[in-house]
Amino acid sequence: HFTSQQLQELEATFQRNRYPDMSTREEIAVWTNLTEARVRVWFKNRRAKWR
C-alpha cells in the first residue's frame, strides 16, 4: 500500500511522463522512500489502468 503522499508524487510524475526511465524511477524511489522496482510496477499498472 502507498501513502497519499507517495501516490501524489507518483501521479504528478505520471501526468508529466508515462514512461519514466531508470534514473527518473530511481529519483522517484528516493523521494517516495520506495524501491525502484515498486515504482516500476506502479507505473506499469498505472499505464494499464490509464488505457
Rank of each mutant, 00 (worst) to 15 (best):
Y19A: 03
Q8P: 01
L34H: 04
S23W: 07
E9W: 15
K49H: 12
T13M: 15
L7D: 05
R46W: 05
R46G: 02
S23N: 11
R16Y: 09
N33H: 10
S23R: 14
W50T: 06
F2V: 07
V30I: 14
D21T: 08
N33K: 10
R46K: 05
E27D: 08
V39L: 02
E36M: 04
R47L: 08
A12C: 08
K44Y: 13
L7R: 07
E26R: 13
R47C: 03
H1V: 11
E9C: 14
V30S: 12
F43E: 00
S23Y: 10
T32R: 01
A48P: 01
S23L: 11
R18K: 15
P20W: 05
H1W: 12
N33I: 05
M22A: 11
M22N: 06
V30D: 08
M22D: 05
M22Q: 13
S23G: 09
I28M: 03
V30T: 12
Q6L: 06
A29W: 03
A29S: 06
D21V: 04
E11R: 03
Q6E: 03
R25V: 08
R51A: 12
V39W: 03
N17W: 08
P20K: 03
E9H: 13
S4C: 14
T24A: 13
E36G: 03
R40D: 07
E9V: 15
N45R: 13
N45F: 13
T13Y: 15
R16K: 13
R18C: 08
Y19L: 03
T3I: 04
E11Q: 02
R51V: 12
I28W: 02
E27Y: 11
H1K: 13
E26P: 02
K49Q: 13
E36R: 01
L34S: 12
A12T: 08
A29I: 03
V41S: 12
W42M: 01
R40E: 07
E11H: 04
W31N: 14
E11I: 05
N33F: 07
W42C: 04
S4K: 14
I28N: 01
R40F: 07
P20H: 05
K44Q: 10
L7P: 01
M22S: 08
V39Q: 00
E36S: 06
H1C: 08
T13L: 15
A48E: 12
Q15H: 10
E36C: 02
E27S: 10
F43L: 02
V41Q: 14
F14Y: 06
L10A: 02
E27G: 07
T32E: 02
R16D: 07
V30R: 14
T32V: 09
R38I: 15
R51T: 11
V41L: 13
E11S: 01
F43I: 01
